[in-house]
Simulated scan of single mutants.
Amino acid sequence: MAGRDFLVFLALTVVSSSLVLPKASGNSEGDALYALRRSFSDPDNVLQSWDPNLVNPCTWFHVTCNQDNHVTRVDLGNSNLSGHLVPELGKLEHLQYLELYKNNIQGEIPAELGNLKNLISLDLYNNNISGRIPPSLGNLKSLVFLRLNDNQLNGPIPRALASISSLKVVDVSNNNLCGTIPSTGPFEHIPLNNFENNPRLEGPELQGLAIYDTNCW
């Protein structure tokens, strides 16, 4: 009986340890950033310090954290990176600044970026990003700066962006957007040259009404 009890105790210990260890060794923000690192080609080794074995990513270069060790900034502009963005970035719920401009990032903008409710600045300009601007970015109610210019984006400008009252700067010039330029909310004050060099983009909308081009895809 004693031997059997010992085996039961040992089995429970192993199961308990397997449940506890991932929580102790994992960090969701570090995991999200490391997923980004894995998706990038980094010839200049700017991400060399991004070590997934650390407790949190606050000691990594180009990452800033607040006093509670939550990631608030990712500064990787002009870093000679190529690859694509990853949906895991949407887990950085305290992120305020995502600076990835002037790289060679390709692929689409993940819809999960709409989960970054504290985001103030989204700078993805001067890359090779394609696809549509996700309507989920309209959920970013703290957003002030949205710079997506000089990419390969297509489709319409999401009308959900017009509901972001904090938005001050929108630049989507030099893409392949289509449809019409919103004229309500923050778009009332955005200069038209921030929309230029989109051959299929028209506007602004008359009387704030959304006019959709059936060929805008």
Rank of each mutant, 00 (worst) to 15 (best):
C58P: 02
C58Q: 06
W60T: 02
W60V: 00
C65K: 04
N66S: 10
N66P: 15
Q67K: 15
D68M: 13
N69K: 09
V71D: 02
T72M: 06
V74K: 01
D75M: 13
D75Y: 15
D75R: 09
D75V: 13
L76Q: 03
L76W: 01
G77P: 01
N78S: 13
S79P: 15
S79L: 06
S79K: 04
N80R: 00
N80L: 00
N80G: 08
L81S: 05
S82L: 03
G83Y: 00
H84F: 11
L85C: 05
E88H: 11
L89N: 02
G90E: 01
H94W: 12
H94C: 07
L95I: 06
Q96P: 11
Y97N: 05
Y97C: 05
L100I: 03
L100E: 09
N103G: 05
I105S: 02
Q106K: 06
Q106N: 08
L113Q: 06
L113K: 04
L116I: 01
K117V: 15
K117Y: 09
K117F: 11
K117D: 14
N118G: 07
L119Y: 05
L119A: 02
L119R: 02
L119C: 08
I120V: 13
I120M: 15
S121N: 07
L122Y: 09
L122Q: 09
D123L: 14
N126T: 02
N127D: 01
N127R: 01
S130C: 05
G131E: 02
R132S: 14
I133C: 14
I133R: 02
I133H: 09
P134C: 05
P134E: 04
S136E: 11
L137R: 04
N139C: 12
L143P: 04
V144A: 15
F145T: 02
L146W: 05
R147E: 11
L148W: 00
L148S: 10
L148E: 11
N149C: 14
N149S: 15
D150K: 03
N151L: 06
N151D: 01
Q152R: 15
Q152H: 15
